[in-house]
Computed example of a mutant assay.
Amino acid sequence: MPVYTVHAPFPGGADLRATDKFVFVRDGFHFWAMVFGPFWLLWNRLWLALIGWVLFTAAFSAGLSSLGVGRSSVVFANLVIALLMGFEASSLRRWTLSRGKWRQLDVVVADNGDTAERRFFERWSQKQHGIVNDQWAIDRGGPPPTRNTQGQSFSNPPPIPAGGIIGLFPEPGGSR
Score class of each variant (00 low, 15 high):
L105F: 12
W136C: 01
G70M: 04
N78E: 15
G68D: 05
W95S: 09
V107C: 04
W95Y: 09
Q135Y: 03
D134H: 11
S90F: 14
V109S: 14
E88F: 15
P145K: 04
A116G: 05
T146S: 13
L67Q: 12
P145H: 02
E117Q: 14
W124G: 00
L67R: 15
G113I: 14
V75G: 07
T149F: 12
S90G: 10
V107I: 11
E88V: 06
D134Q: 12
L67E: 08
R103Q: 10
R123C: 00
N112L: 02
D139Q: 10
R93A: 03
M85Y: 12
S72F: 09
D114F: 03
D106E: 08
G130E: 04
V74K: 04
R119H: 08
F87I: 13
W95I: 01
D139F: 13
L105P: 07
R103C: 01
I138V: 10
L83Y: 12
S73E: 14
N112M: 03
R119D: 04
L67C: 01
P144E: 05
R140I: 01
V132N: 11
R99G: 00
W102N: 05
D134I: 08
S90R: 06
W124M: 01
E122S: 07
V107E: 03
G130Y: 02
R118E: 07
R71P: 15
G68E: 06
L83D: 08
S98P: 00
P145V: 04
N78F: 04
